[in-house]
Amino acid sequence: MTMFELILQGTGETLYMTVVSTALAYVLGLPLGLLLCVTDKGGIRPMPKLNAVVGVIVNIIRSCPFLILLVAMIPVTRFIVGTSIGSTATIVPLVAGSAPFIARMVESSIKEVDAGVIEAAQSMGTSALQLITKVLIPEAKPSLLIGAAISITTILSYSALAGFVGGGGLGAIAVNYGYYRYETDVMMITLLLLIIIVQIFQEVGMRIARRSDKRIR
């Protein structure tokens, strides 16, 4: 395999890990963030104890450095994927590590929705579930999209870190060729590619968010 093919494959793996991990992390993080918001003391269904428990769990995972989490999760990853090496295996710790972060991002976006708007919806006889699906999420959509752009770039950088412990993608190439073999040019190319991918994700994400926001004339 030529170096070009290697880097092309690495880019593909990085995109695969990032996109799939982000999607799965949102499957966990979005409901978790909504739960944090809804059960908060000023929320639509205050449940202080549940809120405190979920909050503490989220904070514990968030305070754990990602590299440690990567290693600590190897048994779990083996159990789920069958192996702890390669791109697919990396998705497991990526999702586990980023879902709590996403939950907090979602929480802060949802909390931006004007309390008066929520009250207005309640005055029309809106149920808690309708409030979430028809008011909170749609009204917070632009902010949620900005959060998603930030999350996906964070997950991308986490995925590169996974290269140290047998993960795939550009991170692994940078580690194996750039770090262990002192091939500085490979290191620079992977770095450049990572920068470009982050730029694209960030810019496209912000642009979609801006376009979806109807508050701006």
Partner: peptide
């Protein structure tokens, strides 16, 4: 029905 000082329409 209820209306408010701050209108509180859905902005989106």
């Amino acid at each position: 029905g209820m209306i408010f000082q701050g209108f509180f329409l859905f902005a989106q």
